[in-house]
Amino acid sequence: MSIPQIAEWLEGTSVAVLVRESAWGFPIVVAIHILGLTLSVGMVLWFDLRLLGVALRGSSVSAVYRRIIPWAGTGFALMFASGAILLAAYATSAHGNVYFRAKVIALFLAGLNALVYHRFTERHRSRWDEAARPPAAARMAGLISIVAWATVILAGRMMSYTMF
């Protein structure tokens, strides 16, 4: 099955048809997407700022992570679930949109950055967990995360204006 065929199949699913054709489906799913975005990116930003050593320096990096992630994780779950529904509803238009592709690349970068942080950078965290200014690799992870998520937001909003 080619990508355009998958996109057509997605648009034909019952949830996609419901979002496109009901009066309230689209606004409700977009509102959940925006709330999820505010909760997830708005909260994960504080962990990124702690990695950069510019906020919440009174708490260890691991404590900030432990306290922030349940909130951000709930936001990410809401954002990804509502985003998947929106993508299904307009899959064909999204597939050909340059901003959608930029958004997917930025999402991939954010995910890869988190993976590298947890697999490699965090390995020696006990040495710098309490440090007001974590090492360069950790600071870089925080900076990349902020840039990647800002790009996701920018590309996502540009996409919604240029897709239809």
């Binding site: 975005l37 909260m43 909130w71 920018l154 590309a155 996502g156 909003r157 919604s160």
Partner: peptide
Amino acid sequence: SLLLTAALSAFHLIGATLVGGGALL
């Protein structure tokens, strides 16, 4: 300009995310 409107809307949402994150914390 659709692109200008879209770019302004995108930065408006970035601002709203900062407000939301700060308000939640």
